[in-house]
Computed example of a mutant assay.
Amino acid sequence: MSVEMELRAAHVRYGPLEALHGLDLAVPAGTVTVLLGRNGAGRTTALRALAGTVRLSAGRVLWQGADVTRLPAYERARRGLCLVPDLRAVYEGLTVAENLALLTPGPADPAPYPELLPLLPRTAGTLSGGERRMLALTRALRARARVVLVDEPSLGLAPPIAARTYRLLAELAVRDGPAVVLAEQRVPDGLAPGTLVHELRRGSRAASGEPVEFT
Protein backbone atom coordinates (compact mmCIF):
# COMPACT_ATOMS: atom_id res chain seq x y z
CA MET A 1 0.00 0.00 0.00
CA SER A 2 1.44 3.34 -1.09
CA VAL A 3 1.58 6.33 1.24
CA GLU A 4 -0.37 9.34 -0.04
CA MET A 5 0.38 11.89 2.71
CA GLU A 6 2.52 11.99 5.84
CA LEU A 7 3.10 14.04 8.93
CA ARG A 8 6.69 13.75 10.08
CA ALA A 9 7.61 14.90 13.58
CA ALA A 10 4.75 17.39 13.34
CA HIS A 11 4.36 20.02 16.04
CA VAL A 12 1.44 22.47 16.14
CA ARG A 13 1.03 25.22 18.70
CA TYR A 14 -1.99 27.31 19.61
CA GLY A 15 -0.38 30.15 21.49
CA PRO A 16 1.37 28.67 24.55
CA LEU A 17 -0.30 25.27 24.10
CA GLU A 18 1.19 22.55 21.91
CA ALA A 19 -1.53 20.41 20.28
CA LEU A 20 0.74 18.01 18.37
CA HIS A 21 3.96 16.74 19.92
CA GLY A 22 6.15 15.42 17.12
CA LEU A 23 3.41 13.32 15.51
CA ASP A 24 4.43 10.83 12.83
CA LEU A 25 1.45 9.76 10.73
CA ALA A 26 1.40 7.98 7.38
CA VAL A 27 -1.85 8.04 5.40
CA PRO A 28 -2.03 5.32 2.72
CA ALA A 29 -3.91 5.66 -0.54
CA GLY A 30 -7.01 3.55 -1.13
CA THR A 31 -7.51 3.03 2.60
CA VAL A 32 -9.67 4.40 5.40
CA THR A 33 -7.59 5.66 8.32
CA VAL A 34 -9.29 6.50 11.62
CA LEU A 35 -7.73 8.95 14.10
CA LEU A 36 -9.20 7.99 17.43
CA GLY A 37 -9.15 9.97 20.65
CA ARG A 38 -10.96 12.14 23.12
CA ASN A 39 -11.41 15.88 22.81
CA GLY A 40 -8.00 17.50 23.01
CA ALA A 41 -6.16 14.40 21.80
CA GLY A 42 -5.04 16.12 18.58
CA ARG A 43 -7.37 14.44 16.05
CA THR A 44 -8.76 17.64 14.56
CA THR A 45 -5.38 19.35 14.59
CA ALA A 46 -3.84 16.42 12.69
CA LEU A 47 -6.49 16.80 9.97
CA ARG A 48 -5.90 20.56 9.82
CA ALA A 49 -2.15 20.02 9.60
CA LEU A 50 -2.63 17.70 6.61
CA ALA A 51 -5.05 20.18 5.01
CA GLY A 52 -2.82 23.18 5.65
CA THR A 53 -5.37 25.15 7.66
CA VAL A 54 -2.92 25.28 10.59
CA ARG A 55 0.82 25.79 10.31
CA LEU A 56 3.38 23.47 11.77
CA SER A 57 5.71 24.99 14.34
CA ALA A 58 8.13 22.15 13.52
CA GLY A 59 8.18 19.06 11.34
CA ARG A 60 7.04 18.39 7.77
CA VAL A 61 4.03 17.48 5.66
CA LEU A 62 4.74 15.23 2.68
CA TRP A 63 2.43 14.47 -0.24
CA GLN A 64 3.58 11.52 -2.32
CA GLY A 65 7.07 12.19 -1.02
CA ALA A 66 7.13 15.91 -1.89
CA ASP A 67 7.42 18.45 0.90
CA VAL A 68 4.23 20.56 0.98
CA THR A 69 4.70 21.99 4.47
CA ARG A 70 4.63 25.57 3.18
CA LEU A 71 1.93 24.95 0.56
CA PRO A 72 -1.22 26.94 1.54
CA ALA A 73 -4.54 25.21 2.08
CA TYR A 74 -6.11 26.49 -1.15
CA GLU A 75 -3.22 25.04 -3.18
CA ARG A 76 -3.63 21.68 -1.46
CA ALA A 77 -7.32 21.83 -2.32
CA ARG A 78 -6.47 22.50 -5.96
CA ARG A 79 -4.18 19.47 -5.94
CA GLY A 80 -7.01 17.24 -4.75
CA LEU A 81 -7.44 17.55 -0.99
CA CYS A 82 -10.97 17.77 0.45
CA LEU A 83 -11.50 18.71 4.11
CA VAL A 84 -14.91 18.39 5.79
CA PRO A 85 -14.62 20.10 9.20
CA ASP A 86 -16.93 19.31 12.08
CA LEU A 87 -18.43 22.83 12.02
CA ARG A 88 -19.13 25.42 9.31
CA ALA A 89 -18.75 22.83 6.56
CA VAL A 90 -21.40 24.31 4.20
CA TYR A 91 -22.16 27.75 2.75
CA GLU A 92 -25.06 28.73 4.96
CA GLY A 93 -26.20 31.66 2.82
CA LEU A 94 -26.62 29.47 -0.28
CA THR A 95 -29.39 26.99 -0.95
CA VAL A 96 -28.79 23.26 -0.87
CA ALA A 97 -28.94 23.22 -4.68
CA GLU A 98 -26.38 26.04 -4.88
CA ASN A 99 -24.06 24.25 -2.47
CA LEU A 100 -24.26 21.15 -4.67
CA ALA A 101 -23.75 23.19 -7.84
CA LEU A 102 -20.37 24.32 -6.51
CA LEU A 103 -19.23 20.70 -6.82
CA THR A 104 -20.19 19.97 -10.41
CA PRO A 105 -22.13 21.94 -13.03
CA GLY A 106 -25.57 20.81 -14.12
CA PRO A 107 -28.67 19.73 -12.18
CA ALA A 108 -28.22 19.41 -8.43
CA ASP A 109 -27.86 15.75 -7.51
CA PRO A 110 -27.96 15.00 -3.76
CA ALA A 111 -27.03 11.35 -4.20
CA PRO A 112 -25.99 9.49 -2.07
CA TYR A 113 -28.33 11.28 0.35
CA PRO A 114 -31.82 11.32 -1.24
CA GLU A 115 -33.05 12.86 2.03
CA LEU A 116 -31.72 16.16 0.65
CA LEU A 117 -33.86 16.09 -2.50
CA PRO A 118 -36.91 17.90 -1.02
CA LEU A 119 -34.55 20.40 0.62
CA LEU A 120 -32.88 21.66 -2.59
CA PRO A 121 -34.54 25.13 -2.47
CA ARG A 122 -33.86 25.60 1.25
CA THR A 123 -31.06 27.84 2.48
CA ALA A 124 -28.35 25.71 4.04
CA GLY A 125 -28.37 27.85 7.17
CA THR A 126 -31.93 26.71 7.93
CA LEU A 127 -31.09 23.00 7.88
CA SER A 128 -30.75 20.79 10.94
CA GLY A 129 -27.31 19.65 12.04
CA GLY A 130 -27.77 16.24 10.45
CA GLU A 131 -29.02 17.72 7.18
CA ARG A 132 -26.01 20.03 7.02
CA ARG A 133 -23.78 17.06 7.67
CA MET A 134 -25.25 15.12 4.77
CA LEU A 135 -24.77 18.14 2.51
CA ALA A 136 -21.14 18.52 3.57
CA LEU A 137 -20.47 14.81 3.16
CA THR A 138 -21.91 14.88 -0.35
CA ARG A 139 -19.05 17.21 -1.25
CA ALA A 140 -16.50 14.73 0.10
CA LEU A 141 -18.10 11.79 -1.69
CA ARG A 142 -18.34 13.56 -5.06
CA ALA A 143 -15.19 15.67 -5.06
CA ARG A 144 -12.97 13.12 -6.86
CA ALA A 145 -10.23 14.04 -4.42
CA ARG A 146 -6.93 12.30 -3.80
CA VAL A 147 -7.19 12.92 -0.05
CA VAL A 148 -10.50 13.13 1.86
CA LEU A 149 -10.40 14.34 5.48
CA VAL A 150 -13.60 14.22 7.53
CA ASP A 151 -13.90 15.38 11.13
CA GLU A 152 -16.56 13.26 12.90
CA PRO A 153 -18.55 12.03 9.86
CA SER A 154 -21.59 10.87 11.86
CA LEU A 155 -22.08 14.13 13.78
CA GLY A 156 -25.85 14.70 14.03
CA LEU A 157 -26.76 11.73 11.83
CA ALA A 158 -29.32 9.06 12.67
CA PRO A 159 -27.69 5.61 13.13
CA PRO A 160 -28.90 4.17 9.77
CA ILE A 161 -27.59 7.21 7.88
CA ALA A 162 -24.32 7.08 9.82
CA ALA A 163 -23.89 3.40 8.88
CA ARG A 164 -24.55 4.27 5.23
CA THR A 165 -21.99 7.06 5.44
CA TYR A 166 -19.21 4.79 6.69
CA ARG A 167 -20.03 2.27 3.97
CA LEU A 168 -19.91 4.98 1.31
CA LEU A 169 -16.58 6.31 2.57
CA ALA A 170 -15.12 2.80 2.54
CA GLU A 171 -16.42 2.22 -0.99
CA LEU A 172 -14.96 5.55 -2.07
CA ALA A 173 -11.49 4.57 -0.85
CA VAL A 174 -11.61 1.21 -2.63
CA ARG A 175 -13.29 2.40 -5.84
CA ASP A 176 -11.46 5.66 -6.55
CA GLY A 177 -8.32 5.09 -4.49
CA PRO A 178 -8.09 8.25 -2.37
CA ALA A 179 -6.71 8.32 1.13
CA VAL A 180 -9.70 8.73 3.47
CA VAL A 181 -8.97 9.97 7.00
CA LEU A 182 -11.67 10.18 9.68
CA ALA A 183 -11.41 11.81 13.11
CA GLU A 184 -13.52 9.95 15.66
CA GLN A 185 -14.03 9.82 19.42
CA ARG A 186 -14.73 6.08 19.29
CA VAL A 187 -14.42 3.29 16.76
CA PRO A 188 -17.52 3.35 14.50
CA ASP A 189 -19.43 0.17 13.78
CA GLY A 190 -19.15 -1.47 10.39
CA LEU A 191 -15.71 -0.29 9.31
CA ALA A 192 -14.39 -2.14 6.27
CA PRO A 193 -11.62 -4.76 6.53
CA GLY A 194 -8.23 -3.14 6.12
CA THR A 195 -9.19 0.03 8.01
CA LEU A 196 -6.29 1.45 10.01
CA VAL A 197 -6.81 2.96 13.45
CA HIS A 198 -4.39 5.27 15.26
CA GLU A 199 -5.22 6.32 18.80
CA LEU A 200 -3.96 9.78 19.70
CA ARG A 201 -3.35 10.99 23.23
CA ARG A 202 -2.21 14.50 24.06
CA GLY A 203 -0.98 15.13 20.54
CA SER A 204 1.02 11.93 20.14
CA ARG A 205 0.24 8.52 18.69
CA ALA A 206 -0.40 6.10 21.55
CA ALA A 207 -1.37 2.95 19.62
CA SER A 208 -2.08 1.65 16.13
CA GLY A 209 -3.92 -1.40 14.84
CA GLU A 210 -7.14 -2.74 13.37
CA PRO A 211 -10.60 -1.64 14.53
CA VAL A 212 -11.24 -4.85 16.51
CA GLU A 213 -8.27 -4.01 18.73
CA PHE A 214 -9.95 -0.80 19.91
CA THR A 215 -13.51 -1.98 20.54
Rank of each mutant, 00 (worst) to 15 (best):
W63T: 00
L116H: 10
L182G: 07
M5E: 12
L191D: 04
R78W: 10
V148G: 00
L56V: 01
M5T: 13
A19M: 01
R122L: 09
M1I: 15
M134E: 07
S204N: 10
R132G: 12
R132T: 12
T195D: 04
G40P: 06
V90I: 15
Y91F: 15
L127S: 03
V197E: 07
L20N: 06
A97E: 15
G15F: 07
G194Y: 08
Q185N: 08
H21F: 05
D151K: 04
E213G: 12
V150T: 05
R133T: 09
R139Q: 08
R139T: 10
A163S: 05
L137Q: 01
L71S: 14
L196F: 12
L168I: 00
L94C: 05
V212K: 15
D109P: 06
R186L: 13
A207T: 09
I161F: 01
Q64I: 08
V3G: 08
R201M: 10
A162M: 05
V180D: 01
T195L: 04
Y91P: 05
D189K: 11
P85C: 03
D67R: 03
A206Y: 05
A170G: 15
A108G: 01
D86H: 14
G190T: 09
V147D: 03
L71E: 15
L169E: 02
A183S: 06
M5N: 11
A29K: 01
L23R: 03
R76Y: 02
A158N: 12
R8A: 11
R175T: 13
L137S: 04
T53E: 06
V90C: 08
E171A: 14
L62F: 08
L7A: 00
P72A: 04
A9F: 11
H21P: 06
T123P: 14
E98G: 10
L17W: 13
V68P: 12
E18Q: 14
G22N: 10
P121L: 02
V181P: 01
A41D: 01
V197Y: 07
L103K: 07
T53C: 07
A173W: 06
D109H: 05
A73W: 13
V150E: 02
E210C: 14
T69S: 12
R78H: 08
L62A: 05
M1Y: 14
P16N: 02
G156E: 11
S208F: 09
G203C: 09
R205P: 11
T33P: 11
G37F: 00
G194W: 09
T53V: 10
C82M: 14
S154H: 00
V150L: 07
A207P: 12
L141F: 02
C82K: 04
T123A: 13
S57P: 14
L20M: 03
M134S: 04
G177E: 01
E213W: 10
S57M: 10
L103F: 14
H11T: 03
S204C: 14
R70I: 11
R201W: 09
E92F: 07
N39G: 07
G59L: 00
R133K: 09
A66Q: 15
D189C: 09
D109Y: 04
A162K: 05
L50E: 00
P72R: 08
I161K: 03
Y74H: 15
P178H: 05
G130N: 06
R167A: 13
Y166C: 03
G130R: 00
R13Y: 11
D109M: 03
R43C: 12
P159G: 07
